[in-house]
């Protein structure tokens, strides 16, 4: 059964009962009875509706490190949930069984924003993570959760591809505590051919999040032969330093064959190490390796003293030496939400 529709935001009426979605840069023009590319927003007689408000397809309590957010309340839990859908299609998607389906094609269950906020408040879970699929396409639901959570003293973080228009992004930034963006690559070719998206809007999003003062971390999944060119990684690091500043953490994570991209081997660890070395050489302060448990690149180091500030093993915090947001050795401020 198609879930009950709910009023959608960020769209405009066009002639012939068509609508234009203004949520993401695709700006889909959708005829009556049709859906946008995301498959979760539908034109019903000239009115745009979301089919995923209050419909959860995955929920778990995860360590915040799993998002990954390394500079946001380390060692705490995040109640993590998803509704179905995505506005791009990465050929390597790890969660394609929920992101690439229509809501009526997978199991969903009802969870109102108030229920989500109450659940976290009552269990003293400090953070809600909008994650797994693409929160942009269930924007109304995610925003309502963040508003309800804020009223209960619970923070909300977003894990997104950053493929979102300016206005809905601003409205997110008003109510969320941190955002992690999957920065897929630094070439339009990769975005177009491997993700069916565009690089430009994502760069705009990153700058806007930084300007809004919301805590931001980046993840780049390094896919062998497709986005691991050293010059590309260097250019990306340079851009991050210049536009976002050296204190925005970036995680270079290991690719594993998945979905439609099963003909490539997992990323060699030395490729990830090379990416990390390049980013550090370009002046970024917090550069991590992901999906390589117990690698030293999982730790947070003080950019001034070089001391280990947070020692990690996978998603586990072995030791957190940060005191009052500073390095205990040299008093260097460590950016983040501690």
């Amino acid at each position: 059964m198609v879930p009950e529709p709910h009023e959608a935001k960020h769209w405009e009426k066009l002639a012939d009962n068509k609508v234009r979605c203004l949520l993401c840069p695709r700006r889909c023009e959708v005829a009556d009875r049709e859906r946008g590319t995301c498959g979760v927003r539908e034109n019903r007689g000239g009115e745009y509706r979301t089919l995923v408000w209050g419909r959860v397809c995955s929920e778990n309590i995860d360590p915040i490190e799993k998002k990954p957010l390394f500079h946001y309340r380390p060692g705490t839990d995040a109640y993590s949930l998803a509704a179905p859908g995505c506005n791009i299609e990465c050929l390597f998607c790890q969660n394609w069984e929920i992101s690439q389906f229509r809501p009526e094609q997978i199991e969903t269950w009802e969870r109102s924003p108030a229920d989500v906020a109450s659940l976290c408040a009552e269990r003293a879970i400090p953070t809600i993570a909008l994650t797994y699929s693409e929160p942009v396409v269930w924007w109304e639901y995610g925003r309502d959760i963040a508003v309800a959570a804020k009223e209960r003293g619970v923070g909300t973080v977003v894990v997104s591809n950053g493929y979102i228009e300016e206005q809905p992004l601003h409205e997110w930034c008003d109510v969320v505590s941190a955002i992690k963006i999957d920065f897929k690559a630094f070439t339009q070719r990769f975005y177009r051919d491997t993700c069916s998206g565009d690089l430009g809007p994502v760069l705009d999003t990153l700058g806007r999040i930084k300007d809004a003062g919301v805590w931001l971390e980046l993840v780049m999944l390094v896919v062998p032969t497709l986005n691991d060119d050293e010059a590309e990684v260097r250019a990306m690091a340079k851009w991050i330093n210049q536009r976002l500043g050296p204190d925005v953490p970036i995680h270079f994570t290991r690719f594993h064959p998945m979905y439609k991209l099963t003909n490539l081997e997992p990323t060699p660890v030395d490729t990830l190490e090379k990416c990390r070395d390049i980013a550090l050489a370009e002046g970024l302060h917090f550069v991590y390796l992901g999906n390589v448990p117990r690698h030293p690149g999982e730790n947070t180091y003080c950019p001034r003293s070089g001391e280990i500030l947070i020692e990690r093993a996978g998603y586990t915090i072995l030791e957190n030496r940060i005191v009052g947001g500073k390095c205990p050795c040299c008093d260097q401020s460590v950016p983040g939400v501690w």
Binding site: L91, R189, D193, L226, K260, L261
Partner: peptide
């Protein structure tokens, strides 16, 4: 348009 080589699944 250049696409990576896709596996033929199923």
């Amino acid at each position: 348009m250049i696409l990576p080589v896709l596996p033929v699944l199923g």
